[in-house]
């Protein structure tokens, strides 16, 4: 990064996900996988061994018909802003928080694959490459040249499409600006959501739509009491969604996990 493109004030990128708008279609998961060169799952892979940087959980209000209600909660790396659990545990500094953007970055090329960060993450947002990545013949031409594919045995996770951030910065620099304008840098899931349920932006910029929504009522964050200050907010006008998503502890019934 050269001097003229240096930010004056660090950003805190984050997002607000409107649970009421989410239909659980999974377009975000597809878009994410395509954008970030996540290989097609192996035939043996399960929902617990596959790689899905963003995963849509289905929640229920627990009532019976006709009062039963369902909602969908997409969970990706929550980009914890305080005492980020995965950063301090990594033995070889393969995880760091970018001071310029607040994004928690993972360096797969430095990752040992010890999976300590996965044990540390309360959101289960980290994924391990259990297999060698394989793309069916011809499909390798769909790979995104801006993102390096990962090898077997390393951990990866959502980084708010860092490739897109770099591209946006380059474009901004070419245009002689220090940083991308709001809207010039948008992760793939945000772009792909057909109901525009995800609002992305710089939470440190009080005027951004994301900051405005995060400040507004009806928002909550997952496992807020852990004190990790996640930068992903959820929004819902339905009280039961707040109740279920912020319940102190998991429910006994095994929930359906989609994706």
């Amino acid at each position: 990064m050269t001097m003229d493109t240096k930010r004056k004030r660090p950003a805190r990128y984050g997002m607000v996900i409107d649970v009421d708008r989410c239909t659980g279609c999974g377009a975000c998961m597809i878009a994410c996988a395509v954008e970030n060169n996540v290989p097609p799952a192996q035939p043996e892979a399960t929902d617990r061994t596959g790689i899905t940087w963003v995963r849509v959980y289905q929640i229920h209000n627990g009532a019976s018909f006709p009062e039963n209600r369902t909602a969908f909660v997409p969970v990706m790396c929550q980009q914890c802003g305080h005492q980020t659990p995965c950063v301090s545990v990594c033995p070889q500094q393969a995880v760091d928080v970018d001071r310029e953007t607040g994004i928690v970055g993972q360096m797969p090329q430095r990752c040992l694959g010890c999976r300590y960060c996965m044990a540390a993450c309360p959101y289960h947002a980290r994924y391990f490459n259990w297999w060698d990545p394989v793309w069916p013949k011809g499909m390798e031409r769909t790979l995104n040249p801006a993102v390096a594919p990962r090898m077997r045995g390393v951990v990866e996770k959502c980084n708010f499409c860092q490739g897109r951030l770099h591209a946006a910065r380059e474009r901004a620099a070419a245009a002689g600006r220090a940083e991308p304008k709001p809207g010039e840098y948008v992760p793939a899931c945000v772009e792909a959501c057909p109901t525009a349920a995800i609002t992305f932006g710089d939470l440190a910029d009080e005027n951004s739509a994301a900051a405005e929504q995060a400040r507004g009522g009806n928002t909550f964050r997952l496992l807020q009491k852990l004190g990790t200050e996640p930068k992903v907010y959820y929004r819902s006008s339905r009280p039961w969604v707040h109740q279920v998503a912020q319940q102190d502890f998991g429910r006994r019934k095994k929930e359906e996990i989609r994706g």
Binding site: L112, R115, R152
Partner: peptide, 23 residues
């Protein structure tokens, strides 16, 4: 055997994160 990339074990000595218990 447990780590995904055993050949990178020496990385811990090369760029240690001194805050990690695993280090």
């Amino acid at each position: 055997v447990d780590v995904g990339q055993p050949l990178r074990a020496w990385f811990t000595f090369w760029h240690p994160n001194v805050h990690s218990m695993l280090t």
